[in-house]
Each structure stands twice: as structure tokens, then as C-alpha cells.
Design a protein around this nucleic acid. Structure first.
Lengths: 175, 175
DNA sequence: TATTGTTATACTCTATAACTATA
DNA sequence: TATAGTTATAGAGTATAACAATA
């Protein structure tokens, strides 16, 4: 009563890409969420700190577009980061509608600490994978993510990390 | 007032892995969600159909563990797929607590059609990437996902796709 | 008129707890 | 007692709509 399934849709295994991506992202999220414990809004708060720390002061809408989250979530996330003393809002004198988000000194120190913890967490995610395969995977992921992101209708010109990351200056310090 | 930012946490670009994975998974989800339009619960319903179609009849808890979703979401998703005539619940005679999910003939036809659409959708996701890089990325993603999944406390022995996928029979039809 | 940021609200999705039936 | 499946409910997260300030 079990062997008579006549191999449904056999020969065409179907893609498991969605499953791969889901498992990997969930795994990353679990590990990193634990690593950044205490940061307001967890991985999302950390990602905002990271973008703010490594780019010319982004605007709130720029952050929202870059991280692909709704603009209405920015206010309270930024509020929380500001209440924690990690970031500041600065009105742009050139366009007084926009608020540029910058790290406070405390935010800079915190970000540096967090990034060390995140690196450790990511090491745990890749624990079962050879270093060479890991590097290849991350490089391809970067390439693909940039490709997808720039194919999107609303790319933000404010944050130029992406291009810099696809093709970092040859010979740049990679560690 | 802008150039005095003294390069915050410079030299340590920090990992963008979380951003890569998020962008890629969201891109995949958008494309595939559109491709499987009409299937109850979209990509999730499709993923269930796919697992059910390519594995010996899984139980509901096996599906939940494999897809890493809470067991309490299974009832209504399976209900919806059943109402659409795509799957059936069969009480396992060996353990009358479990329900094994099987595709109906209509479900098999539908799955075959969906998989063609999903392949096209994934082609769109990878549109900006060379075929060779795509293949390498997917293979590494499979390797990593299996590594992460099997490191998890509650792996399900019911569904053995994974191992089969990491190291497919050498010479197996790859297209 | 269009855009940035904000607030309030409604909606969807997810997780928690408790229950039935089988083992 | 433990597990598969189910149900109801509460909570978190998300999107929708409307507004003020500025361009």
C-alpha cells in the first residue's frame, strides 16, 4: 500500500532553491539575533547601525529603500535606537524635510563590538562548510543580491555600498 | 560639516551577508509568488505540494519540521490545499494518529505545471547572473542549507530529500 | 503637486496554550 | 506519559491611509 505510488512527477526533481534560501536565512537570523541581543529590534536594528556606520549619513527613506522595509517602520525603530543613545537624527540643511541618521560615539563603539559578535555568529552558521566554499557562496550571493536589487524599480542612489562591494578595489585590505 | 566624520569604524566593512540573503529571498519570493498565483497560501502551499510530490507520503509534523514552520499552521494550509482538490489526508494504518499527505491526480498535474512556472520565475531571479555562477551559487546554497538543517536539534527522518540532494547519484539526469 | 517624515489604524501572520485521539 | 493533529486566542509584525512640513 506504499510502493504503488508510481513515482509522481518523477525525473523532474523540481527546484529546492526556496527551501535552501529559507533555511539559510532562518539559520543566519537565529544565530545573529542571539549575537546582537539587547540591540533595539535585533537584527534589523543592527543592520541599520551597520549601514549608518559605513555610509555617508543616509536618510530615513534611503535606509528604508535599501533594507526593503516599509517607510512607516522607520520612525519607531530609529526612535528606539536614538533612545538607546546609538544614533542621532540631523536635519539636512540643504533639504529640511530629510533627517540624516548618524552614529553617536557610543553607537560607533557598539557597532564595532556588534560586528565582532556577528562575525562569530556567521562563523557558526558556516561551521559545516569549507572556507573556500563559504567564500565562493558569499561572493555569488553578493553578486546576485546586487543584481536583484538594482533590477528593482526603486533603487536608492543615496547608499552606494553595493557597487563598492561587488567589485572592491583590487588589493583592498580583505581582513 | 560633512567631511569631519573621521571614517567611522573604517577598515572593517562588516558583513553584508544578512542583506544579501534578505534581498535574494525577497526577490525569489516576489517572483515565485506571482508564478504560483492561485495556489492556496502561495509559495508555502507550493513548497508543500513540491515536498509531498517528490517524497514518500510525509506526515503533517514531518512537513512542518522540514519546512521549519509551526505545526499549528499545518491544519489550515492542508485544509486549503485539500479544499482545492490538490492533496488528500490519509490515516496511516500503522499509527492511526498520523495523517499522511498525498497528491491527488489533479495535484500531480498542477504541481508539474507549477514547477515549470517556478523554473521560469527563478530564471528571472537569476537574469542578471551568468549561468555558471548561478549553478555554483545554487550548489553551495544546497550544501549550506543541508549543513544548517542537519545541525538543527529536530531534524525529521521522514523526509530524506536532503541527503539525496547534497550528493545526487553521479551521472543522474541533470535536466 | 511631490516628497519626507510621522501617526493611527487595520490587517496578516505567528506563536502560545489547551484539547482530542491514539500510542 | 508522550506524540500527532487540531482549535482558539493573543501577540508581533506589517501594510494602509491620512496628515504636517518642506520642496
Amino acid at each position: 500500500m506504499d510502493a504503488d505510488r508510481s513515482a509522481p512527477t518523477a525525473g523532474v526533481p523540481g527546484s529546492n532553491l526556496g527551501w535552501y534560501l529559507g533555511v539559510i536565512l532562518r539559520g543566519w537570523h537565529e544565530e545573529v539575533e542571539r549575537a546582537v541581543e539587547g540591540v533595539p529590534h535585533g537584527t534589523r536594528g543592527y543592520q541599520i547601525l551597520s549601514v549608518v556606520g559605513h555610509n555617508s549619513p543616509p536618510t530615513q527613506s534611503g535606509l528604508a529603500k535599501h533594507l526593503q522595509i516599509d517607510k512607516t517602520v522607520m520612525p519607531y525603530v530609529i526612535d528606539a535606537l536614538q533612545d538607546a543613545g546609538l544614533v542621532e537624527r540631523r536635519t539636512d540643511p540643504k533639504d529640511r524635510r530629510v533627517r540624516r541618521i548618524v552614529l553617536t560615539p557610543h553607537g560607533e563603539r557598539t557597532l564595532a563590538e556588534l560586528e565582532a559578535k556577528v562575525r562569530a555568529a556567521e562563523d557558526a552558521v558556516f561551521a559545516g562548510m569549507p572556507a573556500q566554499a563559504r567564500q565562493a557562496f558569499v561572493e555569488h550571493a553578493a553578486q546576485l543580491a546586487v543584481s536583484i536589487h538594482s533590477a528593482h524599480p526603486s533603487i536608492d542612489p543615496c547608499i552606494a555600498v553595493l557597487d563598492a562591494l561587488v567589485d572592491p578595489e583590487p588589493g583592498a585590505a580583505k581582513r
